[in-house]
Simulated scan of single mutants.
Amino acid sequence: MQEELFTSGRHIPNIDPYLQIWHWPISVYLFLGGLSAGILFFASLFYILGKEKEYPTAIKIATVIPPIALSLGLLALVYDLTHKLYTWQLYMTFRIESPMSWGAWVLLAVTPLSFVWTFSYYREAFPKLEQKFQVFKKFKFLNTVEKFAQENRIYMAYALIPLTLVLGVYTGILLSAFNARPLWNNAILGPLFLVSGLSTGAAAVILLSKNTAEKHMFGKIDLGLIIIELALIVHMIMGFYAGSQVQLEAVQLLVQGEFTLMFFGFVVILGLIIPALLELMELTGRKVPVIVPALLVLLGGLIFRFVMVDAGQLTRYLY
């Protein structure tokens, strides 16, 4: 028999508040959800504004990412669940006070809409692919489905704008709803994750676009979003410093702790400040390979989710 001597009641797993059960699939899921929300938001917005010809990548081509990203994100989420076979029970009820319930139902609406939106542009955006596989020739009924989707694009666009905004905010509120985790429990996290998701969506459009005017426009959008994101991060940190001792200790993980290099080095500097400077240089007429700031924004957005998920689980209220 093995004896254990407890000299303190603190930091004992399963006795003290203990939560280190969310791993990399959750971070990936939050990133892919925010990325999809950003792309679909811009596609819907510019479609409603009648900018189909000016911004074809945003509306027709980049939207191929959300159906794949959302599917992979949901697979990552289910993979991380302990009781995978009970996932369907989320859809047996709706709890207005539960962010997870909101997220489940919003994803149920956004995911099929993203597939229908992409399908409505399939032949127009990817003609070579259709010539090779001849899907519409083999399956005649798809012509009717395509016609229905095209005729109802405007309704999908109006539905997707609020749905994608809720999806983007939800990825942050999912964490901030944990009152027992001081690093997560702040009101800035929802808007911060939304702006970050919109920024990664704009970066994806820049990465895929071959239209100079479109790249220029989304460079402006992304620059504005980066400035807002930096302001929200500063506001979040200032809020922690104005809080209780527990909140002060929580923010130390980001400011002068084990996550400082990842947060300030990879997220703030490499993922926000440097892309902002490069995009500003490009907008002022200097030749900058747009692929560089776009990739840095995407990388920074992904690392940001990993940092917040991992660091948040280490913080707790002990007094």
Rank of each mutant, 00 (worst) to 15 (best):
residue 188 I to Q: 12
residue 319 Y to K: 03
residue 254 L to V: 14
residue 303 I to W: 02
residue 277 L to C: 08
residue 249 E to F: 07
residue 115 F to M: 13
residue 77 L to M: 10
residue 185 N to K: 03
residue 157 A to F: 01
residue 221 I to L: 15
residue 241 Y to Q: 12
residue 317 Y to I: 14
residue 94 F to A: 13
residue 291 I to S: 15
residue 180 A to H: 05
residue 131 Q to F: 09
residue 139 F to T: 12
residue 16 D to P: 00
residue 26 I to C: 02
residue 174 L to T: 05
residue 86 Y to R: 15
residue 171 T to N: 01
residue 302 L to P: 11
residue 191 P to V: 08
residue 52 E to A: 13
residue 48 I to D: 02
residue 83 H to V: 00
residue 62 A to S: 13
residue 154 I to L: 13
residue 295 L to Q: 05
residue 316 R to H: 10
residue 27 S to M: 06
residue 199 S to E: 08
residue 215 K to Q: 15
residue 76 A to Y: 04
residue 103 G to L: 05
residue 273 I to M: 09
residue 129 L to M: 12
residue 214 E to D: 09
residue 280 L to F: 14
residue 112 P to A: 04
residue 80 D to V: 07
residue 57 T to K: 09
residue 106 V to T: 14
residue 279 E to A: 12
residue 87 T to I: 12
residue 87 T to D: 06
residue 154 I to V: 10
residue 53 K to Y: 09
residue 157 A to H: 01
residue 244 S to I: 05
residue 235 H to R: 06
residue 47 Y to R: 09
residue 253 L to Q: 04
residue 16 D to V: 00
residue 262 M to I: 06
residue 111 T to A: 12
residue 144 T to M: 03
residue 58 A to L: 04
residue 147 K to T: 15
residue 186 N to W: 04
residue 29 Y to Q: 04
residue 303 I to Q: 08
residue 263 F to C: 02
residue 217 M to Y: 15
residue 253 L to E: 01
residue 260 T to H: 02
residue 51 K to V: 02
residue 37 A to P: 14
residue 109 A to I: 15
residue 274 I to S: 03
residue 173 I to W: 15
residue 83 H to C: 00
residue 277 L to N: 03
residue 52 E to Y: 06
residue 118 T to V: 03
residue 6 F to W: 05
residue 301 G to C: 11
residue 3 E to T: 14
residue 277 L to Y: 10
residue 143 N to W: 11
residue 151 E to R: 15
residue 290 V to N: 13
residue 112 P to H: 07
residue 83 H to I: 00
residue 115 F to R: 10
residue 98 S to H: 12
residue 159 A to H: 09
residue 42 F to D: 04
residue 158 Y to E: 09
residue 130 E to H: 03
residue 54 E to A: 15
residue 235 H to A: 13
residue 164 T to A: 11
residue 196 S to P: 00
residue 199 S to H: 01
residue 218 F to A: 12
residue 243 G to T: 03
residue 7 T to Q: 03
residue 213 A to Q: 13
residue 4 E to M: 08
residue 308 M to C: 01
residue 91 Y to Q: 05
residue 201 G to K: 06
residue 196 S to H: 04
residue 97 E to M: 10
residue 102 W to L: 05
